[in-house]
């Protein structure tokens, strides 16, 4: 029961799909960042700041971050439910993970819009 309610969507197939879609978004984001850094080598503050100041980049970053949260929710959940047999501890760790995500997300918004 606990194992079910702490999973991302309570539906294995949907978790699976979200895991894949978010993975592809993350690869695209990483490839873009890597390409930008290599293309502007050695990277300076001006280009770096301008990049993250751009609205499109802010949207892409939020999308990537959202993907990262969903992706790691499914991943960490899979690992915890496999290796932590104690249900109480398992539940506590998953809840801590979710709280961490919320914190990271608010932090990221603050970084991008300040």
């Amino acid at each position: 029961m606990l194992t079910q309610i702490t999973s991302l969507t309570k539906n294995g197939l949907r978790d699976w799909l979200i895991q894949r879609v978010s993975a592809i978004i993350l690869v695209l984001y990483l490839a873009f960042i890597l390409g930008f850094i290599i293309g502007h080598h050695p990277i300076g503050f001006q280009e770096w700041y301008a990049l993250f100041h751009h609205t499109g980049m802010k949207a892409f970053t939020i999308l990537a971050l959202l993907s990262l949260m969903l992706h790691s929710w499914v991943g960490v959940w899979t690992v915890l439910t496999d290796y932590v047999p104690n249900k109480a501890l398992q539940g506590i760790l998953i809840i801590l993970m979710i709280l961490a995500f919320v914190t990271y997300f608010v932090w990221a918004i603050a970084i991008l819009w300040s």
Binding site: G44, F45, W48, Y49, F52, L68, S72, G75, V76, V79, M97, A100, Y104, W107, A108, I111
Partner: peptide, 26 residues
Amino acid sequence: GVLLFLFIPFVLWLLHHSLISQQEFL
């Protein structure tokens, strides 16, 4: 994967400081 999850705050912290100002970036 677990390592990457644990390093999220470290990366966010770097991103945060790299965007504050020229001095912070350096």
